[in-house]
Structures are given as C-alpha cells and as structure tokens.
Amino acid sequence: MKPDLRSRPADDELAEVVAYHEGDMEAAIGTLLEDIRHLRRQLALAEGAMGRGMARGWRPSYDRD
C-alpha cells in the first residue's frame, strides 16, 4: 500500500508551528488566527485597489468554497 504523500507536508508544517511555540497549542492557534486576520485585511485592500477589468470580473473570496 502506498503512503499518502499529500498529507505529509501539512503534518510537517503543523509540527513546525507547534515547535515554534514550544508545544503551546493555544499560542500556535492564536498566531494562526492572527495570520488569518492579517491576510483577510490584505485581501480587502487588494480588492479595493484592483480595478474591475483587471481580473475580468473576478472577485476574491474570503471563505473556502
């Protein structure tokens, strides 16, 4: 049976985030939530600066589909 290689990078990233926070899962989650808020603000700014014709009517989505 082949191992599922698609899940390995996510597992590695998770381990790195937890290690960075010295095993404190609440701190790791807090940092990730702050990153999400920051990226949403950046997306809103980009959307405001982007002309309608620039992306042929495409609008960014703030949530997963």
Rank of each mutant, 00 (worst) to 15 (best):
M1R: 07
M1Q: 09
K2D: 02
K2L: 04
P3Q: 06
D4E: 07
L5W: 15
L5K: 11
L5N: 03
L5G: 01
R6A: 02
S7R: 10
R8E: 13
R8Y: 11
R8C: 02
R8M: 01
P9A: 02
P9M: 06
P9V: 00
P9F: 01
P9L: 03
A10H: 09
A10W: 08
A10P: 01
A10S: 14
A10D: 12
D11M: 09
D12E: 12
E13D: 15
L14Q: 09
L14Y: 07
A15E: 09
A15W: 13
E16D: 12
E16Y: 05
E16K: 15
V17P: 04
H21Y: 04
E22R: 12
E22M: 02
G23S: 02
G23I: 06
G23F: 14
D24H: 07
M25D: 07
M25C: 03
M25T: 14
E26S: 08
A28M: 04
I29A: 12
G30Q: 13
T31G: 11
T31M: 07
T31I: 05
T31E: 11
L32I: 01
L32M: 11
L33R: 14
E34I: 00
E34Q: 08
D35Y: 09
D35K: 14
D35N: 14
I36E: 11
R37G: 00
H38A: 03
L39Y: 15
L39G: 01
L39N: 07
L39F: 15
R40P: 01
R40T: 13
R41F: 06
R41S: 06
R41D: 11
Q42R: 11
Q42G: 01
Q42W: 09
L43P: 00
L43C: 04
A44G: 04
L45D: 14
L45R: 07
A46S: 06
A46K: 10
A46C: 03
E47F: 00
E47T: 05
E47A: 06
E47M: 02
G48W: 05
G48Q: 10
G48M: 00
A49R: 12
A49Y: 09
A49D: 15
M50G: 03
M50F: 00
G51D: 13
G51F: 00
R52F: 13
R52H: 11
R52G: 02
R52N: 08
G53F: 09
G53N: 14
G53S: 12
M54R: 14
M54G: 03
R56Y: 00
R56C: 01
G57D: 13
G57F: 14
G57H: 11
G57N: 11
R59Y: 15
R59N: 06
R59Q: 15
S61G: 05
S61E: 12
S61V: 07
S61T: 09
S61C: 07
Y62G: 08
D63V: 02
D63L: 00
D63K: 13
R64T: 08
D65N: 05
